[in-house]
């Protein structure tokens, strides 16, 4: 096991023994916490943003104020929100989950509204003319067509959340981020590298799984390459939350 690179004191970037010694306890526990802390907000954010987005699409007057609020929320640094929330929720998972849920909202609400706006008017008209009631039209026509844009937002939010959870480590609530603080306290790069790699892998894997789900549910998006609109990834560029 030759060291990959050396720090200033000759410490290797990775010590494999540390990984095997700590795999089942520290690393697995950190990973479990990370999964809970990053996916709970995605789920909550999705459940809230769907009705909120629908409401904004239905009553256009709501959208501008909602957008203003979400864009401010998105600008707030996660660490600031964590600290302020401590006053209300103490050092619990809720302190991390609430801000990340807000970030998820700030990405997903515009995603739902944009997705619904992307439904061509003639398609909506045709559905009405064929006798679709409002609810059936929403469920069978509008939401399926909006799905790619919504899913793109969901992917952005998920990946951002996974990376943002680690900031909570500053207060001891950071999942894999805990490995960063351990590394700093001991001036020891291995846990930091392991943490960074695992966070990136987790983000990548989640993104791929969501992409797979999106593909499976939207076969028409892959049909005929000629008239593909620009992918929703571009629409969702701002991304959710900042450290």
């Amino acid at each position: 096991m030759s060291p990959l690179a050396a720090g200033d004191d000759g410490e290797p970037l990775i010590r494999w023994e540390w990984i095997s010694n700590n795999l089942t306890d520290d690393i697995a526990e950190a990973l479990r916490e990370h999964l809970i802390l990053s996916f709970t907000p995605v789920l909550l954010g999705f459940l809230v943003s769907l009705p909120l987005g629908l409401a904004c699409a239905r009553w256009k007057r709501l959208y501008q104020p909602t957008l203003a609020i979400t864009s401010i929320l998105y600008a707030l640094p996660a660490i600031a929100l964590f600290v302020i929330l401590i006053a209300f929720t103490g050092l619990t998972y809720t302190t991390v989950v609430v801000p990340l849920t807000l970030y998820t909202l700030s990405v997903l609400v515009p995603g739902v509204v944009d997705g619904l706006a992307a439904v061509p008017d003639h398609v909506r008209q045709a559905a009405t003319a064929m006798g679709f009631g409002p609810l059936r039209r929403l469920l069978q026509v509008e939401l399926p067509i909006a799905l790619p844009v919504v899913m793109a937002g969901l992917r952005v939010a998920t990946v951002s959340n996974i990376s943002l959870v680690s900031v909570g480590a500053i207060m001891g609530l950071g999942g894999l981020g805990q490995l960063f603080t351990t590394g700093l306290q001991r001036d020891f790069p291995t846990p930091i590298v392991v943490g960074v790699v695992l966070v990136i892998l987790l983000a990548l894997l989640s993104d791929l799984i969501l992409l797979g789900i999106q593909r499976a549910f939207t076969p028409w998006e892959r049909a005929g390459g000629t008239r593909r609109r620009k992918t929703a990834d571009q629409a969702a560029l701002p991304g959710g939350g900042a450290a």
Binding site: P120, H122, V123, A126, A129, M130, V141, I145, T218, W220
Partner: peptide, 16 residues
């Protein structure tokens, strides 16, 4: 509406 056929200019086909 279910008892009346309707055809429009852009066809209004469901893309999905």
């Amino acid at each position: 509406r279910r008892g009346i056929g309707y055809v429009i200019q852009q066809a209004g086909l469901f893309p999905h």
